[in-house]
Nucleic acid binder design. Structure first.
Length: 292
DNA sequence: TACTGTGTTAATAC
DNA sequence: AGTATTAACACAGT
């Protein structure tokens, strides 16, 4: 759910509130989410709040508290009225970690409990698994064309965090609609001129979404319950059965890499050659269908 | 009841 | 080595 623009929004929100705050205490209500020892962060001061891919990095003097929201994680910064901690029902909902700061309570809520918090002394582990930031100078057109020398479907490639860090299901659908590329297209079949357009589209769409504080589709929120405004600007995602904004053709929803995928069949045609290639790649292996 | 969902990873197979 | 598929995590909404 939270992709780069949503995580950036959370980071900006946290940064405006908890900078220079010292961590006084930590209460863990669901330990699976909190993969570190409270002692590693207690008494440390928050020096900075940063983002890398979809990770939130809370920089402390001795290392980083690294948080991934996964599907439904969210932060809630509550001000501390007194030394006594009283939470509203809204704040207590799906509450799993409570970090007490000098002037605030930093609450981590997660309906599905997929979110994770780690502690690292440096960012080596993160850097080893993440590709470049799509909004940084590292993300060049030549880099994009290099990773696209692959038979993989373009949607799978764009979702791969080790190739580009931060894109998720919503923005990949948006980018591919913008560029007019079918998500099943083998990446190596996309011509260079299209890759250049895709490169620009990735940056533009992410920047616009950040400006709108992200997309609230199901559960994403920042600052407890504030919603992103990019939902109304989406061109294809969540628009199945509605007319394409460009040509009027009905938007369809299919499965690609096991993910719900929205596209305009007219603007994003799949080359018959691509289709044949895909069939030959799938060596006819029987699908194993799990029936409970 | 059964299926879906903005994410990631490990295991397995080819 | 590179690619594809599946299950798992866990819960709420339809």
């Amino acid at each position: 759910m939270p992709e780069l623009p949503e995580v950036q929004t959370v980071v900006s929100d946290l940064k405006s509130k908890i900078l220079q705050q010292k961590i006084i205490n930590v209460q863990v209500l669901f330990s699976k989410i909190f993969v570190l020892e409270p002692a590693q962060i207690i008494n440390q001061t928050i020096i900075d709040v940063l983002r890398r891919g979809k990770y939130i990095l809370i920089k402390l003097s001795n290392g980083y508290l690294v948080v991934h929201l996964r599907m439904t994680g969210r932060f809630f910064v509550a001000s501390k009225k007194s030394s006594k901690i009283i939470l509203t029902p809204e704040q207590q909902k799906h509450l799993h970690v409570l970090i007490e700061l000098q002037d605030y309570l930093l609450l981590f809520q997660d309906q599905r409990k997929f979110g994770r918090m780690h502690f690292y002394q440096n960012l080596a582990w993160l850097e080893s698994k993440l590709g470049p930031e799509p909004l940084s100078p590292d993300f060049t057109i030549s880099y994009l064309s290099q990773i696209c020398k692959s038979n993989r479907q373009i949607k799978a490639l764009l979702l791969d965090q080790s190739k580009i860090a931060g894109l998720g299901n919503i923005y990949v659908d948006e980018v591919l609609w913008q560029v007019g590329v079918h998500p099943n297209t083998p990446a190596c079949n996309i011509v260079f001129t299209k890759l250049k357009i895709m490169h620009t589209a990735i940056q533009n769409i992410l920047q616009q979404a950040i400006a709108m504080q992200g997309t609230t589709f199901l559960s994403y929120a920042f600052d407890g319950a504030q919603k992103g405004k990019f939902l109304t600007y989406l061109k294809v995602f969540n628009r199945a059965k509605l007319p394409c904004f460009r040509c009027g053709t009905t938007i369809i929803k299919i499965k690609v890499v096991q993910r719900g995928t929205h596209l305009c069949p007219a603007c994003q045609p799949l080359d018959p050659l691509d289709f044949r290639k895909k069939i030959s790649l799938n060596t006819g292996r029987a699908k194993q269908v799990k029936k409970n």
